[in-house]
Amino acid sequence: MDQRISFVTLAVTDLDATRRFYVDGLGWHPELDVPGEVLMFRTGEHLVLSLWDRDHFAEEVGEPTMTGIAPITLAHNLATKEEVDGVLALAREAGADPVSDAVQRDWGGYTGYFGDPDGYRWEVAYNPGDIGRLVLPD
């Protein structure tokens, strides 16, 4: 088996609110948009983020059972600290809640977080190490 991830799929409670946040607020462009069912965004060379209506998700995968903050973060890494601050400001303008300002971390990075309409947490990060450079676009 190849060592890779092709899709990240998240169940969402209100697909219209999710569309407004990602498309209208953050300016993302969907690769697939099926109203009432799913939104898919190409988020990397071979990676798609699929935001699936919760009821459709439950029919195929099973009923999600989590409450509170999901024990997962999605990350958007950038080449500079200034870009991190800019993305966090854009998320705030798009209605993200909560948004935590970026801070310098003990491990050398600079990161902040925002929540999407379903509370999924996005880390916005500048990581000066080798692993941080590995995930930046060419």
Rank of each mutant, 00 (worst) to 15 (best):
Q3V: 12
I5N: 04
S6Q: 06
V12F: 07
D14F: 02
D14G: 10
R19W: 13
F21A: 05
V23L: 11
G27D: 10
G27R: 08
E31Q: 14
E31N: 08
L32F: 13
D33V: 05
G36C: 10
G36T: 09
G36M: 10
E37P: 00
V38F: 06
M40P: 02
R42K: 13
H46R: 13
H46G: 06
V48I: 15
L49S: 09
L51K: 10
W52D: 05
D53L: 06
A58S: 14
E60Y: 07
E63C: 01
M66I: 01
T67S: 03
I69V: 09
I69N: 00
A70M: 02
T73P: 00
L74T: 03
A75V: 06
L78P: 01
L78E: 09
L78W: 02
E82W: 03
E82G: 13
G86P: 00
A91R: 07
A91L: 10
V99H: 04
S100H: 09
D101W: 00
D101Q: 13
R105V: 01
R105K: 12
R105F: 00
R105A: 08
D106E: 14
W107H: 12
W107N: 11
G108P: 00
G109M: 08
Y110Q: 03
Y110M: 02
T111I: 08
F114P: 13
D116T: 01
D118I: 00
R121E: 05
R121S: 08
R121K: 09
W122A: 04
E123L: 07
V124Y: 00
A125K: 05
Y126K: 07
D130R: 11
P137Y: 06
D138A: 15
